[in-house]
Design a protein around this nucleic acid. Sequence first.
DNA 1: ATATATTTTTAGACTAATCTAAAAATAGTT
DNA 2: AACTATTTTTAGATTAGTCTAAAAATATAT
Lengths: 220, 220
Amino acid sequence: MNSFTEENYLKSIFKLSQKTDNGVSTNSIAESLETKASSVTDMIKKLSDKKLVNYKKYQGVNLTKEGKDIAVSIIRNHRLWEVFLVEKLNFKWDEVHDLAEDLEHINSKKLTNQLDAFLEYPKYDPHGDPIPDKDGNIHRHLDITLADLKTYDKGIVVGVKEHSKSYLNYLETINLVLGTEIKVNKIVDFDLSMSVEVNKKESVNISHQASKNLIIKKSN
Amino acid sequence: MNSFTEENYLKSIFKLSQKTDNGVSTNSIAESLETKASSVTDMIKKLSDKKLVNYKKYQGVNLTKEGKDIAVSIIRNHRLWEVFLVEKLNFKWDEVHDLAEDLEHINSKKLTNQLDAFLEYPKYDPHGDPIPDKDGNIHRHLDITLADLKTYDKGIVVGVKEHSKSYLNYLETINLVLGTEIKVNKIVDFDLSMSVEVNKKESVNISHQASKNLIIKKSN
DNA sequence: ATATATTTTTAGACTAATCTAAAAATAGTT
DNA sequence: AACTATTTTTAGATTAGTCTAAAAATATAT
Ligand SMILES: [Mn+2]
Ligand SMILES: [Mn+2]
Ligand SMILES: [Mn+2]
Ligand SMILES: [Mn+2]
């Protein structure tokens, strides 16, 4: 089987490959895994020997079908466990990621599928990220953020692009959790900060930094 | 923190120390972990440096308070996860041990305690083994096995001393699962095999090998 | 008490994953 | 096209955990 380390590389390469058309660069992997480029090169060779990535020196890597399947199944595990922790064990959405990083490596198709059934086949995790189904299909949200909206646009909060505790905590204090209805009341052209109506009540001020990480489903 | 490997050594030493009054021998650890004595010696030194075991060369080891606490918490995790898998995810009692071997190393007090609460504070795991509570207290069954009973003794199956798939499967085929009422009808003095009445109905024949691994609570 | 058998430890080597420092390849700039 | 900067790879070392083979300590038997 594959080690935890190998699985983390595959997951990282999968996520990075969605942000680029070319191969995934050695440095970008190193950065995302907080390791050194030389370590990445070594691991890439290993994954290449195992036919989990396609690799030509200096050209970056791409996942093979098999490598991608493994990556997606780990992401599926991660997000299902996050749902479990929040829905069944009363964790908050800002507390589950690190635990899921460990739990995602428990390798059992039966466990994953039974957990999925137990949770009644959730489509999204506590951060709005889509959960790949049994066959690896992922239904992504349209990539519209609060920062993309115009004055008087309305919508519903459906996800976050930034998963740090501080950001999630902040959102909670201003009531911008998943499912919240919002309406843009004003956009300050100087710094692109916004005044946003939350659940038809209070207006809150939100920086561009914050608004561009909040995924919205426009509601007309 | 401690690695998976260190945790497995601690767990193994804890279990072995319950079967002996002296220190736990290097060879017994090696056997239980399916490794070599030389590897055990190395690891013991490491655990000793970390003050998790007391060790004098050639004298065997004993857990320190801290080492014991870690071992017990891992056993607590293991057994809670087994309950979860059986009660919530519809696993059979012979399918859960290997998964629990991995899950037990997920290290989070909060996770463990929330899981315990979610399962409504179970006292025993699917094999009848006692689950240590939050403070590490373990309420063991009296160590009476079916093989200890006399003719016409009655009792209830409350646990197993052997956890192999083949034994658990066999018990299921003859309906000797946890909670089953039994009565000893006959003991063959030649091979100590028994004829046992199960749930006041069928009588089954059981070898000594099988009966001495079944833990019974005598019912008068 | 001495010889023999068993257990435990040491010595030295191997693998996976990592690192630093240096070399090689690629990309960007004048 | 030539120089410079950046990225990637290589070379060599390190650490955790393991192994085999041999040495040392302890236990058992005569
Ligand atoms: Mn996460
Ligand atoms: Mn998530
Ligand atoms: Mn078990
Ligand atoms: Mn058990």
